[in-house]
Design a binder for these strands. Sequence first.
DNA 1: GTGAAACTTGACTATTTTAGTCAGGTATAT
DNA 2: ATATACCTGACTAAAATAGTCAAGTTTCAC
Lengths: 141, 141
Amino acid sequence: MRLTSKGRYAVMALVDLARFDNITPVSLRDISLRQGISLDFLEQIFSKLRKKEIVQSIRGTQGGYILNRKAKEIKLTNIFDAVDEKVKTVQCKKESKKGCNGKTTKCLTHNLWDELESHINNFFEEKSLEDLVKDNAERRV
Amino acid sequence: MRLTSKGRYAVMALVDLARFDNITPVSLRDISLRQGISLDFLEQIFSKLRKKEIVQSIRGTQGGYILNRKAKEIKLTNIFDAVDEKVKTVQCKKESKKGCNGKTTKCLTHNLWDELESHINNFFEEKSLEDLVKDNAERRV
DNA sequence: GTGAAACTTGACTATTTTAGTCAGGTATAT
DNA sequence: ATATACCTGACTAAAATAGTCAAGTTTCAC
């Protein structure tokens, strides 16, 4: 199981963004340079973050992005959800070979994968952007 | 993040195998039919499981595989390790653009990914094959 | 001893996902 | 005006995934 770059970059970029005052917009160009992430790719990512109201955009010169909510209220789960970084442990669909549809008939290990999914998602639900910024500030002392 | 079929199948197949007495070998053909997994693919998987001494093979007619250790002593982490199902949250290598090498200079979110990795691996280290078989037996009552 | 069952191995391949790139836009501060 | 920066959709190279295929070898049952 691996985390995709899209998900990782989204979090990295938002942590970078959250370090600022949240009044003056931060341009993607700056984030791109600081974090070493392609500008074009960042634009794709922020387009999704904006649609899910995690960030707010300010167009034009001196424009950029600011957080749309308090860092405390943005959980990792919200970020991953926005960029379609899903935790998937099963493939089981309605019509499976072995009749595992997740409801009436379950495959031998279905509960295990459900548990695993919850376990990972719990982690994402607990961590907020604020936690990450704080954590980072502490380590720099 | 998604679990690969290889990892999922490895666990499914071993749970299936572990349900038996562990004396008479179970053929991959049977597992293949019961679990709906391609025989050729299973052979690849079991070849790795054998090399890591998780299963033992018995060749010839009436042959098959049996567990090489007690189900209690086979953890998910051993299984995933055997089939190269790794939990990877970072790409950071020795020479990274932003100088994140995981040691001297760390990227803004490096600790987060380390934490996530541990969180997931903990789950895999706790669960044993025995747990899974028992869990399954209970639910069938 | 011979045939079938089942393990063994390595190479090959189609499909899907990932990780971007590219080319055009539009809005706005100066 | 014009440069900066957001916005959008289409496209693509590379990697990973999920197998398949072919050609063995071993051993049991008869």
